[in-house]
Design a binder for these strands. Structure first.
Lengths: 225, 225
DNA sequence: TCTGGTTTGTGATAACTCTCACAAGCGCAT
DNA sequence: ATGCGCTTGTGAGAGTTATCACAAACCAGA
């Protein structure tokens, strides 16, 4: 099982286990956790937890469970969170500002070290202690500060152009909040977070259940008549 | 093919096609689009586009492609976006504020009609033209305004409690931005958007490629020596 | 009407992911 | 030492998703 590449689906869940383990480590003095318990904290089933963790290695003890601290360390290491990753945010509108001061990033070892925009009326201002730089200076600053992650929070029309500039500056990991598809070279990793897409998916299922309920009610009226 | 339930994976892509189609409709005067072109705009492959669309029905014409307007309408209808869904945001911190003024929501038929918080020092303030109400009034306001979607943008510790209040108020669709797992009854739909989890996933792949490059370089140095 | 070029719709298959169920292994009590 | 209860690790099978590849269908032009 070891040495096999870790499935994408598993990678996507490791951060959830990590968070649950951090909660456990802070909480009561227990040193161990069972797959059952971890599963319930993570909102998945126990078999999945065990299989996921088995891809990292055999870190549990049968009859006992997993040592919380040890597992924490292993997941942290596997996710590459033992080093910290300087990140830049491009686009300092409402969303960019919120991201710049988002606690969750720094808590996980992601330091936002630079903010960029093209709007001269805000370039130079400070947000959360960081000055807003002009996008033209991106390449130099990325090199100087060893920035490895780019976060796009621009309007959709600028997203592709910004992505290209980030790639040109040497960034290999991009998190895209703009509601637009960005195409980049295959050795660059792009993940997207699309706020309104998630709502649209909810809408689909909401409509569905509502339709079913309406049908049930119609049915009831018919059978009563 | 018709009448079969639409796979989740397909539902998750429909909003992406929708966005691409909207761009097309605004752009040049073309009335048709091929699966190939739509695929490239959506960043997926053509076969997937065709299979996805075939779940909705046979809306294309062989040798020609898909009529943009017609397809737009069908996807809009399927996603339940012909009606608009009043939504409430709970938690008016940085993120909540950014979401409240996020253009992407209203553009897709999601109206934010209420904001809630528990902090008395901000309750009563206005954000984007909407007053911040106290969470205690949630149930009444949800009922009055027919709110069907709840957006959680609170700190993680409050997320579960807020989710329960939303459910108690009759909300069946929840979008959770708090970095915490929320458990609700199975007839309630929860989707989560976790900003830092996405970064952690990027970190995993970034570390991976970096490790490969380091190994390659070491190899090169060895073979040169 | 027929022919050629184009594009859809979809069976078939491959790849991936989830779930089940149980043997293997551990610790504790006796 | 031995047995019992508990929990992991994982093979096997089910379910879901992605990809391939091609027949069916359409349009335009002759």
């Amino acid at each position: 099982m070891r040495n096999r590449p870790i499935p994408e689906a598993t990678v996507a869940r490791l951060p959830i286990y990590l968070r649950a383990l951090l909660d456990l480590a802070e909480g009561r003095g227990e040193t161990n956790v069972s797959s059952e318990e971890l599963a319930s904290l993570a909102g998945v089933n126990a078999a999945k937890v065990r299989k996921d963790l088995s891809y990292l290695g055999s870190y549990g003890t049968r009859g006992v469970g997993y040592d919380i601290e040890y597992l924490l360390y292993q997941i942290t290491r596997e996710l590459g969170l033992t080093q910290d990753w300087p990140a830049a945010i491009v686009g300092v509108g409402n969303l960019g500002r919120a991201l710049a001061s988002y606690k969750g990033f720094s808590e996980r070892g992601f330091r936002i070290t630079a903010l960029f925009d093209v709007d001269d009326s805000i370039v130079g201002q400070e947000v959360g202690g960081l000055p807003i730089r002009h996008l033209d200076d991106l390449k130099d600053i990325v090199a100087d500060e060893g920035i490895s992650i780019g976060i796009i929070a621009t309007p959709p029309a600028s997203a592709q152009e910004v992505a290209e500039k980030l790639v040109d500056a040497g960034v290999k990991s991009i998190l895209n909040f703009a509601p637009a598809v960005v195409n980049v070279a295959p050795d660059v990793n792009v993940r997207k977070v699309d706020l309104s897409i998630e709502l649209q998916i909810l809408s689909f299922y909401q409509q569905r259940t509502q339709a079913i309920q309406t049908a049930r009610e119609a049915n009831r009226r018919l059978s009563q008549a």
